[in-house]
Design a protein around this nucleic acid. Structure first.
Lengths: 236, 236
DNA sequence: GAAGTATTTTTGACTAATCAAAATGCTGGT
DNA sequence: ACCAGCATTTTGATTAGTCAAAAATACTTC
Protein backbone atom coordinates (compact mmCIF):
# COMPACT_ATOMS: atom_id res chain seq x y z
CA UNK A 1 0.00 0.00 0.00
CA UNK A 2 1.72 3.16 -1.16
CA UNK A 3 1.44 6.17 1.15
CA UNK A 4 -1.13 8.88 0.48
CA UNK A 5 0.13 12.40 0.13
CA UNK A 6 -1.26 13.09 3.60
CA UNK A 7 0.89 10.34 5.05
CA UNK A 8 3.86 11.66 3.09
CA UNK A 9 3.29 15.08 4.58
CA UNK A 10 3.17 13.71 8.11
CA UNK A 11 6.36 11.74 7.61
CA UNK A 12 8.13 14.72 6.09
CA UNK A 13 6.99 17.01 8.91
CA UNK A 14 8.27 14.56 11.51
CA UNK A 15 11.54 14.12 9.64
CA UNK A 16 12.18 17.84 9.39
CA UNK A 17 10.70 18.58 12.80
CA UNK A 18 12.91 16.10 14.62
CA UNK A 19 15.97 17.37 12.76
CA UNK A 20 15.17 20.94 13.80
CA UNK A 21 14.72 19.97 17.45
CA UNK A 22 17.00 21.99 19.71
CA UNK A 23 17.27 19.30 22.37
CA UNK A 24 18.62 16.03 21.11
CA UNK A 25 15.62 14.56 22.90
CA UNK A 26 14.67 13.28 19.43
CA UNK A 27 10.93 12.95 20.09
CA UNK A 28 8.77 15.54 18.33
CA UNK A 29 5.87 16.81 20.46
CA UNK A 30 2.39 16.50 18.97
CA UNK A 31 1.72 20.21 19.24
CA UNK A 32 4.71 21.04 17.09
CA UNK A 33 3.74 18.46 14.51
CA UNK A 34 0.16 19.68 14.36
CA UNK A 35 1.38 23.22 13.98
CA UNK A 36 3.83 22.33 11.21
CA UNK A 37 1.03 20.62 9.31
CA UNK A 38 -1.55 23.33 9.99
CA UNK A 39 -3.86 20.79 11.57
CA UNK A 40 -5.71 20.53 14.88
CA UNK A 41 -3.75 18.77 17.65
CA UNK A 42 -6.29 15.98 17.95
CA UNK A 43 -5.97 15.27 14.26
CA UNK A 44 -2.23 14.83 14.57
CA UNK A 45 -2.63 12.44 17.49
CA UNK A 46 -5.11 10.27 15.60
CA UNK A 47 -3.00 10.16 12.48
CA UNK A 48 0.21 9.42 14.36
CA UNK A 49 -1.48 6.49 16.06
CA UNK A 50 -2.39 4.94 12.73
CA UNK A 51 1.10 5.63 11.42
CA UNK A 52 2.43 3.78 14.46
CA UNK A 53 0.17 0.81 13.59
CA UNK A 54 1.73 0.60 10.15
CA UNK A 55 5.20 0.72 11.64
CA UNK A 56 6.30 4.02 10.19
CA UNK A 57 6.70 5.89 13.48
CA UNK A 58 7.23 5.23 17.13
CA UNK A 59 4.73 6.99 19.30
CA UNK A 60 5.08 7.71 22.98
CA UNK A 61 1.79 9.08 24.35
CA UNK A 62 2.07 12.52 25.94
CA UNK A 63 5.68 12.66 24.86
CA UNK A 64 6.05 12.73 21.12
CA UNK A 65 6.78 10.88 17.94
CA UNK A 66 9.81 9.77 15.94
CA UNK A 67 10.30 7.90 12.70
CA UNK A 68 11.17 4.23 12.52
CA UNK A 69 13.81 3.21 10.02
CA UNK A 70 11.13 2.48 7.41
CA UNK A 71 9.44 5.81 8.08
CA UNK A 72 12.70 7.68 7.90
CA UNK A 73 13.58 6.25 4.53
CA UNK A 74 10.16 7.12 3.15
CA UNK A 75 10.39 10.63 4.59
CA UNK A 76 13.87 11.14 3.17
CA UNK A 77 12.62 10.18 -0.27
CA UNK A 78 9.81 12.71 -0.03
CA UNK A 79 12.34 15.35 0.97
CA UNK A 80 14.54 14.24 -1.88
CA UNK A 81 11.69 14.69 -4.35
CA UNK A 82 10.94 18.11 -2.92
CA UNK A 83 14.48 19.36 -3.12
CA UNK A 84 15.31 17.95 -6.52
CA UNK A 85 12.14 19.55 -7.85
CA UNK A 86 13.07 22.87 -6.25
CA UNK A 87 16.47 22.88 -7.86
CA UNK A 88 14.99 21.80 -11.18
CA UNK A 89 12.50 24.64 -11.09
CA UNK A 90 15.31 27.13 -10.49
CA UNK A 91 17.96 25.72 -12.83
CA UNK A 92 15.82 24.52 -15.70
CA UNK A 93 12.50 26.33 -15.50
CA UNK A 94 13.85 29.72 -14.53
CA UNK A 95 12.07 30.12 -11.22
CA UNK A 96 13.44 32.42 -8.54
CA UNK A 97 14.61 30.69 -5.37
CA UNK A 98 11.88 32.32 -3.31
CA UNK A 99 9.14 31.04 -5.61
CA UNK A 100 9.79 27.33 -5.69
CA UNK A 101 8.55 26.14 -2.34
CA UNK A 102 4.79 26.01 -2.93
CA UNK A 103 5.12 24.48 -6.36
CA UNK A 104 7.49 21.82 -5.04
CA UNK A 105 5.11 21.16 -2.17
CA UNK A 106 2.54 19.99 -4.72
CA UNK A 107 4.88 18.24 -7.10
CA UNK A 108 6.65 16.18 -4.44
CA UNK A 109 3.55 13.98 -4.24
CA UNK A 110 3.07 13.66 -7.99
CA UNK A 111 6.48 13.08 -9.55
CA UNK A 112 7.58 9.48 -10.01
CA UNK A 113 10.93 8.23 -8.80
CA UNK A 114 11.84 7.88 -12.42
CA UNK A 115 11.17 11.53 -13.19
CA UNK A 116 13.00 12.68 -10.09
CA UNK A 117 16.01 10.66 -11.12
CA UNK A 118 15.89 12.15 -14.62
CA UNK A 119 15.87 15.63 -13.11
CA UNK A 120 18.66 14.66 -10.73
CA UNK A 121 20.73 13.35 -13.61
CA UNK A 122 20.03 16.45 -15.70
CA UNK A 123 21.19 18.62 -12.79
CA UNK A 124 24.41 16.61 -12.38
CA UNK A 125 23.52 14.77 -9.16
CA UNK A 126 23.64 17.90 -7.00
CA UNK A 127 24.27 17.69 -3.26
CA UNK A 128 22.09 20.63 -2.24
CA UNK A 129 18.99 22.52 -3.36
CA UNK A 130 18.77 26.28 -4.03
CA UNK A 131 18.59 27.01 -0.30
CA UNK A 132 21.63 24.88 0.43
CA UNK A 133 19.49 22.16 1.99
CA UNK A 134 21.08 18.76 1.37
CA UNK A 135 19.41 16.41 -1.10
CA UNK A 136 19.11 12.79 0.08
CA UNK A 137 20.30 10.20 -2.44
CA UNK A 138 18.12 7.42 -3.93
CA UNK A 139 18.50 5.46 -0.71
CA UNK A 140 17.45 8.42 1.38
CA UNK A 141 20.93 8.96 2.76
CA UNK A 142 22.33 12.44 3.34
CA UNK A 143 26.08 13.01 3.46
CA UNK A 144 26.42 15.24 6.52
CA UNK A 145 27.50 18.80 5.86
CA UNK A 146 29.56 20.31 8.68
CA UNK A 147 28.22 23.80 9.06
CA UNK A 148 28.07 26.63 11.55
CA UNK A 149 25.62 29.49 11.74
CA UNK A 150 26.46 33.18 11.81
CA UNK A 151 26.07 32.87 15.59
CA UNK A 152 28.86 30.34 16.03
CA UNK A 153 31.39 30.91 13.26
CA UNK A 154 34.68 32.64 14.02
CA UNK A 155 34.74 36.46 13.97
CA UNK A 156 36.61 38.47 11.34
CA UNK A 157 37.29 35.40 9.29
CA UNK A 158 36.10 34.94 5.73
CA UNK A 159 33.36 32.35 5.53
CA UNK A 160 31.19 31.14 2.69
CA UNK A 161 27.41 31.04 3.03
CA UNK A 162 26.20 27.53 2.28
CA UNK A 163 22.62 27.35 3.43
CA UNK A 164 19.59 29.43 4.39
CA UNK A 165 17.10 27.58 6.57
CA UNK A 166 13.77 29.26 5.96
CA UNK A 167 11.14 29.04 3.27
CA UNK A 168 9.50 32.38 3.91
CA UNK A 169 9.33 34.44 0.74
CA UNK A 170 10.05 37.80 2.32
CA UNK A 171 12.97 36.46 4.31
CA UNK A 172 14.45 34.90 1.18
CA UNK A 173 13.98 38.19 -0.67
CA UNK A 174 15.76 39.99 2.13
CA UNK A 175 18.65 37.54 2.00
CA UNK A 176 18.91 37.92 -1.75
CA UNK A 177 18.77 41.71 -1.68
CA UNK A 178 21.65 41.85 0.77
CA UNK A 179 23.80 39.35 -1.10
CA UNK A 180 23.60 36.68 1.53
CA UNK A 181 22.64 33.80 -0.75
CA UNK A 182 24.54 30.50 -0.64
CA UNK A 183 27.89 30.94 -2.33
CA UNK A 184 28.53 34.50 -1.12
CA UNK A 185 31.64 35.21 0.90
CA UNK A 186 31.32 37.28 4.06
CA UNK A 187 32.77 37.99 7.48
CA UNK A 188 31.05 38.31 10.83
CA UNK A 189 32.49 41.43 12.45
CA UNK A 190 30.67 41.53 15.70
CA UNK A 191 27.98 39.96 17.83
CA UNK A 192 26.14 41.96 20.42
CA UNK A 193 23.97 40.11 22.88
CA UNK A 194 22.57 43.36 24.28
CA UNK A 195 21.08 44.42 20.96
CA UNK A 196 20.47 40.78 20.06
CA UNK A 197 22.17 41.32 16.72
CA UNK A 198 25.07 40.39 14.47
CA UNK A 199 27.05 42.73 12.20
CA UNK A 200 28.18 41.29 8.91
CA UNK A 201 30.53 42.57 6.25
CA UNK A 202 29.52 41.30 2.87
CA UNK A 203 30.26 41.95 -0.76
CA UNK A 204 31.80 45.35 -1.65
CA UNK A 205 32.29 46.17 2.02
CA UNK A 206 28.56 46.47 2.34
CA UNK A 207 27.69 46.25 6.04
CA UNK A 208 24.49 44.93 7.47
CA UNK A 209 23.20 44.19 10.94
CA UNK A 210 20.69 41.40 11.44
CA UNK A 211 18.94 39.91 14.46
CA UNK A 212 20.15 36.69 16.02
CA UNK A 213 16.95 34.92 15.02
CA UNK A 214 17.74 35.64 11.37
CA UNK A 215 21.47 35.02 11.87
CA UNK A 216 20.79 31.54 13.18
CA UNK A 217 19.16 30.65 9.88
CA UNK A 218 22.22 31.49 7.81
CA UNK A 219 24.77 28.68 7.77
CA UNK A 220 28.37 29.02 6.62
CA UNK A 221 31.53 27.06 5.91
CA UNK A 222 34.76 28.22 7.43
CA UNK A 223 37.81 27.97 5.15
CA UNK A 224 39.10 25.21 7.44
CA UNK A 225 35.91 23.21 7.08
CA UNK A 226 35.96 23.78 3.35
CA UNK A 227 39.51 22.45 3.21
CA UNK A 228 38.59 19.34 5.17
CA UNK A 229 35.63 18.80 2.90
CA UNK A 230 37.85 19.14 -0.14
CA UNK A 231 40.22 16.63 1.42
CA UNK A 232 37.39 14.16 1.79
CA UNK A 233 36.27 14.63 -1.78
CA UNK A 234 39.72 14.26 -3.32
CA UNK A 235 40.72 11.27 -1.23
CA UNK A 236 37.49 9.45 -2.13
CA UNK B 1 -13.43 26.55 -4.21
CA UNK B 2 -10.85 24.98 -6.45
CA UNK B 3 -11.70 21.55 -7.84
CA UNK B 4 -10.26 18.40 -6.26
CA UNK B 5 -8.31 16.11 -8.53
CA UNK B 6 -11.29 13.76 -8.47
CA UNK B 7 -13.51 16.50 -9.86
CA UNK B 8 -10.87 17.31 -12.45
CA UNK B 9 -10.82 13.69 -13.50
CA UNK B 10 -14.58 13.58 -13.90
CA UNK B 11 -14.60 16.76 -15.96
CA UNK B 12 -11.78 15.52 -18.15
CA UNK B 13 -13.48 12.16 -18.68
CA UNK B 14 -16.71 13.87 -19.71
CA UNK B 15 -14.84 16.26 -21.98
CA UNK B 16 -12.97 13.48 -23.76
CA UNK B 17 -15.90 11.08 -23.62
CA UNK B 18 -18.34 13.48 -25.25
CA UNK B 19 -15.77 14.32 -27.93
CA UNK B 20 -15.33 10.63 -28.72
CA UNK B 21 -19.08 10.04 -28.96
CA UNK B 22 -20.07 8.57 -32.32
CA UNK B 23 -23.57 10.05 -32.32
CA UNK B 24 -23.59 13.81 -32.12
CA UNK B 25 -26.19 13.35 -29.40
CA UNK B 26 -23.52 14.88 -27.19
CA UNK B 27 -24.80 13.44 -23.90
CA UNK B 28 -22.38 10.94 -22.34
CA UNK B 29 -24.11 7.91 -20.74
CA UNK B 30 -23.29 7.21 -17.11
CA UNK B 31 -22.04 3.73 -17.86
CA UNK B 32 -19.43 5.02 -20.24
CA UNK B 33 -18.29 7.66 -17.79
CA UNK B 34 -18.06 5.16 -14.93
CA UNK B 35 -16.07 2.83 -17.16
CA UNK B 36 -13.68 5.56 -18.30
CA UNK B 37 -12.98 6.46 -14.69
CA UNK B 38 -12.77 2.86 -13.49
CA UNK B 39 -15.49 3.50 -10.97
CA UNK B 40 -18.81 1.80 -10.09
CA UNK B 41 -21.82 3.17 -12.00
CA UNK B 42 -23.54 4.34 -8.84
CA UNK B 43 -20.46 6.33 -7.89
CA UNK B 44 -20.53 8.18 -11.18
CA UNK B 45 -24.22 9.02 -10.79
CA UNK B 46 -23.69 10.44 -7.31
CA UNK B 47 -20.70 12.50 -8.33
CA UNK B 48 -22.36 13.82 -11.46
CA UNK B 49 -25.30 15.00 -9.42
CA UNK B 50 -23.08 17.03 -7.16
CA UNK B 51 -21.19 18.39 -10.18
CA UNK B 52 -24.56 19.48 -11.57
CA UNK B 53 -25.29 21.30 -8.29
CA UNK B 54 -22.10 23.30 -8.67
CA UNK B 55 -23.00 24.18 -12.24
CA UNK B 56 -20.18 22.34 -13.96
CA UNK B 57 -22.30 19.83 -15.85
CA UNK B 58 -25.82 19.38 -17.13
CA UNK B 59 -27.29 16.11 -16.05
CA UNK B 60 -30.29 14.40 -17.61
CA UNK B 61 -31.31 11.41 -15.49
CA UNK B 62 -31.29 8.09 -17.33
CA UNK B 63 -29.83 9.84 -20.34
CA UNK B 64 -26.39 11.19 -19.69
CA UNK B 65 -24.22 14.16 -18.85
CA UNK B 66 -22.55 17.04 -20.66
CA UNK B 67 -20.37 19.93 -19.57
CA UNK B 68 -21.63 23.44 -19.07
CA UNK B 69 -19.53 26.27 -20.40
CA UNK B 70 -17.79 26.63 -17.03
CA UNK B 71 -17.18 22.89 -16.82
CA UNK B 72 -15.85 22.75 -20.34
CA UNK B 73 -13.33 25.48 -19.72
CA UNK B 74 -12.11 23.77 -16.58
CA UNK B 75 -11.90 20.43 -18.37
CA UNK B 76 -10.01 21.94 -21.28
CA UNK B 77 -7.46 23.40 -18.90
CA UNK B 78 -6.92 20.00 -17.29
CA UNK B 79 -6.42 18.51 -20.74
CA UNK B 80 -4.06 21.36 -21.55
CA UNK B 81 -1.99 20.61 -18.48
CA UNK B 82 -1.91 16.93 -19.35
CA UNK B 83 -0.80 17.44 -22.92
CA UNK B 84 1.75 20.15 -22.25
CA UNK B 85 3.26 17.92 -19.57
CA UNK B 86 3.33 14.98 -21.98
CA UNK B 87 5.17 16.95 -24.60
CA UNK B 88 7.54 18.37 -22.00
CA UNK B 89 8.38 14.90 -20.75
CA UNK B 90 9.21 13.79 -24.29
CA UNK B 91 11.01 16.89 -25.55
CA UNK B 92 12.85 17.98 -22.43
CA UNK B 93 13.05 14.99 -20.11
CA UNK B 94 13.78 12.38 -22.75
CA UNK B 95 10.76 10.17 -22.17
CA UNK B 96 9.50 7.89 -24.92
CA UNK B 97 6.04 8.75 -26.25
CA UNK B 98 4.57 5.52 -24.90
CA UNK B 99 5.79 6.24 -21.37
CA UNK B 100 4.35 9.66 -20.70
CA UNK B 101 0.69 8.99 -20.09
CA UNK B 102 0.74 7.72 -16.50
CA UNK B 103 3.22 10.32 -15.35
CA UNK B 104 1.17 13.09 -16.94
CA UNK B 105 -1.96 11.67 -15.36
CA UNK B 106 -0.45 12.44 -11.95
CA UNK B 107 1.22 15.71 -12.81
CA UNK B 108 -1.84 17.27 -14.43
CA UNK B 109 -3.30 17.74 -10.94
CA UNK B 110 -0.13 19.10 -9.37
CA UNK B 111 1.42 21.55 -11.82
CA UNK B 112 0.46 25.20 -11.45
CA UNK B 113 -0.79 27.26 -14.37
CA UNK B 114 2.43 29.16 -14.08
CA UNK B 115 4.58 26.08 -14.52
CA UNK B 116 2.48 24.82 -17.41
CA UNK B 117 2.85 28.14 -19.14
CA UNK B 118 6.58 28.07 -18.54
CA UNK B 119 6.76 24.62 -20.14
CA UNK B 120 4.52 25.76 -22.98
CA UNK B 121 6.78 28.72 -23.63
CA UNK B 122 9.89 26.54 -23.48
CA UNK B 123 8.33 24.22 -26.05
CA UNK B 124 7.48 27.10 -28.38
CA UNK B 125 3.71 27.15 -27.84
CA UNK B 126 3.11 23.85 -29.60
CA UNK B 127 -0.29 23.00 -31.11
CA UNK B 128 -0.19 19.28 -30.44
CA UNK B 129 1.26 16.78 -27.97
CA UNK B 130 3.43 13.75 -28.87
CA UNK B 131 0.38 11.77 -29.96
CA UNK B 132 -0.84 14.59 -32.17
CA UNK B 133 -3.65 15.44 -29.76
CA UNK B 134 -4.36 19.18 -29.87
CA UNK B 135 -3.32 21.31 -26.89
CA UNK B 136 -5.95 23.82 -25.71
CA UNK B 137 -4.63 27.36 -25.22
CA UNK B 138 -4.69 29.27 -21.90
CA UNK B 139 -8.38 29.99 -22.46
CA UNK B 140 -9.13 26.33 -23.09
CA UNK B 141 -9.76 26.89 -26.79
CA UNK B 142 -8.66 24.35 -29.39
CA UNK B 143 -8.10 25.39 -32.99
CA UNK B 144 -9.86 22.61 -34.88
CA UNK B 145 -7.64 20.28 -36.89
CA UNK B 146 -9.27 18.89 -40.03
CA UNK B 147 -8.28 15.25 -40.13
CA UNK B 148 -9.33 11.95 -41.61
CA UNK B 149 -8.58 8.46 -40.43
CA UNK B 150 -6.95 5.67 -42.43
CA UNK B 151 -10.52 4.46 -43.02
CA UNK B 152 -11.67 7.59 -44.80
CA UNK B 153 -8.66 9.12 -46.52
CA UNK B 154 -8.23 8.78 -50.29
CA UNK B 155 -6.52 5.61 -51.59
CA UNK B 156 -3.11 5.63 -53.22
CA UNK B 157 -2.50 9.20 -52.26
CA UNK B 158 0.37 10.31 -50.07
CA UNK B 159 -0.88 11.42 -46.66
CA UNK B 160 0.89 12.53 -43.51
CA UNK B 161 0.12 10.93 -40.17
CA UNK B 162 -0.85 13.63 -37.69
CA UNK B 163 -2.38 11.88 -34.73
CA UNK B 164 -2.68 8.55 -32.96
CA UNK B 165 -5.71 8.30 -30.69
CA UNK B 166 -4.83 5.70 -28.09
CA UNK B 167 -2.80 5.71 -24.92
CA UNK B 168 -2.16 2.00 -24.72
CA UNK B 169 1.56 1.30 -24.38
CA UNK B 170 1.64 -1.76 -26.61
CA UNK B 171 -0.37 -0.10 -29.34
CA UNK B 172 1.95 2.90 -29.30
CA UNK B 173 4.96 0.59 -29.47
CA UNK B 174 3.42 -1.16 -32.45
CA UNK B 175 2.82 2.16 -34.19
CA UNK B 176 6.37 3.24 -33.53
CA UNK B 177 7.91 -0.02 -34.69
CA UNK B 178 6.11 0.23 -38.01
CA UNK B 179 6.96 3.87 -38.59
CA UNK B 180 3.42 5.11 -38.22
CA UNK B 181 4.14 7.93 -35.76
CA UNK B 182 2.86 11.46 -36.39
CA UNK B 183 4.95 13.07 -39.13
CA UNK B 184 5.44 9.92 -41.21
CA UNK B 185 4.29 9.92 -44.82
CA UNK B 186 2.31 6.92 -46.07
CA UNK B 187 -0.29 5.75 -48.57
CA UNK B 188 -3.35 3.60 -48.01
CA UNK B 189 -3.30 1.03 -50.79
CA UNK B 190 -6.39 -0.97 -50.09
CA UNK B 191 -9.27 -1.49 -47.72
CA UNK B 192 -10.96 -4.87 -47.46
CA UNK B 193 -14.20 -5.06 -45.53
CA UNK B 194 -14.24 -8.85 -45.76
CA UNK B 195 -10.97 -9.22 -43.83
CA UNK B 196 -11.77 -6.10 -41.84
CA UNK B 197 -8.38 -4.67 -42.63
CA UNK B 198 -6.42 -1.88 -44.31
CA UNK B 199 -3.17 -2.25 -46.25
CA UNK B 200 -0.70 0.58 -45.89
CA UNK B 201 2.51 1.37 -47.72
CA UNK B 202 4.90 3.20 -45.46
CA UNK B 203 8.51 4.23 -45.36
CA UNK B 204 10.95 2.36 -47.64
CA UNK B 205 8.05 0.59 -49.36
CA UNK B 206 7.45 -1.33 -46.18
CA UNK B 207 3.95 -2.81 -46.33
CA UNK B 208 1.74 -3.52 -43.40
CA UNK B 209 -1.83 -4.64 -42.93
CA UNK B 210 -3.76 -3.51 -39.90
CA UNK B 211 -7.31 -4.03 -38.64
CA UNK B 212 -9.95 -1.38 -39.07
CA UNK B 213 -10.17 -0.88 -35.33
CA UNK B 214 -6.52 0.12 -35.29
CA UNK B 215 -6.80 2.03 -38.55
CA UNK B 216 -9.55 4.22 -37.16
CA UNK B 217 -7.15 5.44 -34.48
CA UNK B 218 -4.58 6.72 -36.94
CA UNK B 219 -5.45 10.16 -38.29
CA UNK B 220 -3.86 11.78 -41.34
CA UNK B 221 -3.71 14.98 -43.32
CA UNK B 222 -4.20 14.83 -47.06
CA UNK B 223 -1.90 17.09 -49.05
CA UNK B 224 -4.97 19.21 -49.93
CA UNK B 225 -5.86 19.68 -46.28
CA UNK B 226 -2.27 20.47 -45.47
CA UNK B 227 -2.28 23.13 -48.21
CA UNK B 228 -5.45 24.69 -46.82
CA UNK B 229 -3.96 24.68 -43.37
CA UNK B 230 -0.82 26.35 -44.65
CA UNK B 231 -3.01 28.93 -46.35
CA UNK B 232 -4.69 29.69 -43.04
CA UNK B 233 -1.41 30.00 -41.23
CA UNK B 234 0.24 32.30 -43.76
CA UNK B 235 -2.80 34.55 -44.17
CA UNK B 236 -3.11 34.99 -40.41
C1' DG C 1 2.72 19.36 47.46
C1' DA C 2 -1.45 21.68 45.85
C1' DA C 3 -3.24 24.66 42.28
C1' DG C 4 -3.38 26.39 37.98
C1' DT C 5 -1.80 26.32 33.20
C1' DA C 6 -0.51 24.13 29.08
C1' DT C 7 -0.42 20.22 26.34
C1' DT C 8 -2.35 16.03 24.76
C1' DT C 9 -5.92 12.71 24.06
C1' DT C 10 -10.79 11.43 23.52
C1' DT C 11 -15.19 11.96 21.79
C1' DG C 12 -18.69 12.81 18.52
C1' DA C 13 -19.58 14.60 14.28
C1' DC C 14 -18.72 15.90 9.48
C1' DT C 15 -17.23 15.72 4.29
C1' DA C 16 -15.55 13.53 0.12
C1' DA C 17 -15.32 9.53 -2.34
C1' DT C 18 -16.11 5.08 -2.87
C1' DC C 19 -18.54 0.09 -3.26
C1' DA C 20 -22.06 -3.74 -3.47
C1' DA C 21 -26.34 -4.91 -4.07
C1' DA C 22 -31.24 -3.86 -4.27
C1' DA C 23 -34.66 -1.15 -6.62
C1' DT C 24 -36.10 1.34 -10.40
C1' DG C 25 -36.74 2.90 -15.06
C1' DC C 26 -36.14 2.34 -20.08
C1' DT C 27 -36.31 -0.19 -24.55
C1' DG C 28 -36.65 -3.67 -28.01
C1' DG C 29 -38.84 -7.80 -29.73
C1' DT C 30 -42.48 -10.64 -30.56
C1' DA D 1 -48.77 -4.12 -25.42
C1' DC D 2 -46.06 -6.68 -22.52
C1' DC D 3 -42.09 -8.62 -20.58
C1' DA D 4 -37.07 -9.58 -20.48
C1' DG D 5 -32.89 -7.67 -20.11
C1' DC D 6 -30.00 -3.91 -19.57
C1' DA D 7 -28.66 0.59 -17.86
C1' DT D 8 -29.28 3.59 -14.21
C1' DT D 9 -30.32 5.16 -9.67
C1' DT D 10 -30.93 4.31 -4.64
C1' DT D 11 -29.60 2.61 -0.45
C1' DG D 12 -26.68 1.53 3.26
C1' DA D 13 -22.15 1.02 4.57
C1' DT D 14 -17.05 1.99 4.53
C1' DT D 15 -12.56 4.54 4.61
C1' DA D 16 -9.50 8.57 5.03
C1' DG D 17 -9.01 12.77 6.89
C1' DT D 18 -10.55 16.44 9.38
C1' DC D 19 -12.52 19.74 13.42
C1' DA D 20 -14.34 21.52 17.94
C1' DA D 21 -14.77 20.91 22.35
C1' DA D 22 -14.58 17.99 26.50
C1' DA D 23 -11.66 15.08 29.35
C1' DA D 24 -7.31 13.57 30.84
C1' DT D 25 -2.59 14.13 31.76
C1' DA D 26 1.79 16.55 32.53
C1' DC D 27 4.32 20.58 33.92
C1' DT D 28 5.24 24.89 36.78
C1' DT D 29 5.06 27.72 40.32
C1' DC D 30 4.50 29.06 44.61
Amino acid sequence: MLPSSTVENYLKAIYLGVAALTKPHRLLPMGQLACALGVAPGTATTMVKTLAESGLVEYEPYTGVALTEAGEKLAALVVRRHRVVELFLVQVMGYRWDEVHDEAEQLEHAVSDRLVDRMDEMLGRPAVDPHGDPIPDQEGVITPQPAQSLLTCPLNTPVTITRVIDQDKSFLRFIENHHLKPGESIEVEDRDSASDSVRVRGKDDHHITIGTRAASKVLVHTPAAAAILLELVTSA
